[in-house]
Write a protein that binds this DNA or RNA. Structure first.
Lengths: 232, 232
DNA sequence: TACGTCTTACGTACGATGTACGTACCGTGT
DNA sequence: ACACGGTACGTACATCGTACGTAAGACGTA
């Protein structure tokens, strides 16, 4: 009920809050990378003393969890139950791509921290919803959900570039000179295609594969269990 | 080509080397987590002074790269070109699972660091090899490779537990009491299936989906006779 | 043999970081 | 008026990564 103003400096100090702290952290991360984030930096960004942060956040690791939660909470998850489940699945995975695009550097945190709040379950809920609506049983729905998550996570990790692992383009783009032709014949042969990097198309290609497999599984389900009516 | 022995204490000090440093780092990480790793810790583990490490490793970040490289280099990648490409793909992705199982905590590093040495390209080479052997054209092979990587990475990330993200079982296993039934009806409804967590089966389920989609794509390719029309 | 150079191990030292702890302030309920 | 709970703050410390200077052996050359 009470007004929450510091009375003396109402405008210059918009009240320190966990939300503002997390947002500042996200900003700093996007600006200077995860390694660049420090409690002192966050405090400075907000024009506060360092220890003031600890009134709202128990420690840095909790702050990072907050960052992950913030990013996931920012996911736009439209869902139209009337659409075919394949389209709904597509939309869900694309939502991942969207946030990964908006908060590329913070994504690392999302990947490597767990989220304690129910918010983290939103994507799972959507996935389960569309799978079970398609007629899959509970166990299969859960598995589908996990498979979707796996692809969404992995694809985004690769794209964000934090996982340049196993397919980073740098050395290839710079020429395959140093590579042993005996050990990496295909990498060398496909260097041009490897160099041409189109995340969008790559992402959609893999997504199509996945969705198609889901659809096939679905058709099989209809044919077997539901009787002769396989139309959708 | 001189002998590299310290002469005085040959046994007690097996010569400090980058390899030994990286291995010690991996050990420490597996024992105490990534956050627990410190240069001082590594030095102590090896019975050396901290700064001696810097004769073989420029900085900590480089050491971490070394860790990632070490783990990936440890991947066992058997490959029989005579097998159907689907089986080869399966084996490749399973190899990921294997290392992730052997070095669960170091996996975080692998996920979040790029690997500069050609070693990091080994999995890519294998993927490209099997895709092109199956008859896919270069562009499609590259895309298939990337999609496989995405699933392999994502699935492993989830399983390793570092990415309990979006589907962590903790709150669910402990009961769905706190969840709003209006917002998370399916999560609540499928709580039993969510709680029953069988990584092996989950992994294989998703892998099957993927491989099946690849196979379908392949059949379509054969039928058409053309090169590599993507999944459209 | 004597000497200059190179490589490696080491110790000291500094700046930056996360955070435990004590203090001062303010708004609110009694 | 007074006590209290929450919030902002400053100081202090342990720990970290690492720049720098030093010493001791290995080796090529004279």
């Amino acid at each position: 009920m009470a007004k929450r103003v510091t009375s003396v400096t109402p405008v210059t100090r918009p009240v320190l809050t966990r939300e503002r702290i997390v947002q500042a952290a996200v900003d700093l991360i996007e600006r200077g990378g995860v390694d660049g984030l420090s409690m002192r930096g966050v405090a400075a960004e907000l024009g506060v003393a360092v220890m003031s942060l600890y009134n709202h956040v128990p420690n840095k690791s909790a702050l990072l969890e907050g960052v992950a939660e913030y990013v996931v909470a920012g996911m736009d998850l439209p869902d139209d139950p009337d659409e075919p489940f394949t389209d709904r699945a597509r939309a869900l995975v694309r939502a991942f791509r969207k946030v990964a695009h908006d908060y590329p550097r913070s994504m690392t945190i999302v990947f490597t921290h767990k989220i304690d709040t129910p918010i983290g379950l939103r994507p799972a809920e959507r996935a389960l919803a569309l799978a079970s609506a398609a007629g899959f049983d509970g166990e299969t729905s859960v598995r589908i959900m996990r498979a979707l998550m796996a692809y969404a996570l992995g694809a985004q990790m690769r794209e964000v570039g934090h996982a340049k692992v196993l397919d980073h383009e740098t050395p290839i783009t710079e020429g395959t000179g140093g590579l042993d032709p005996a050990e990496y014949p295909h990498v060398i042969a496909f260097a041009p295609q490897l160099a041409r990097y189109d995340p969008e198309t790559d992402f959609e290609f893999g997504l199509d594969l996945f969705i198609e497999a889901l659809d096939a599984l679905h058709r099989r389900l209809d044919a077997a269990g539901g009787g002769g009516d396989a139309a959708t």
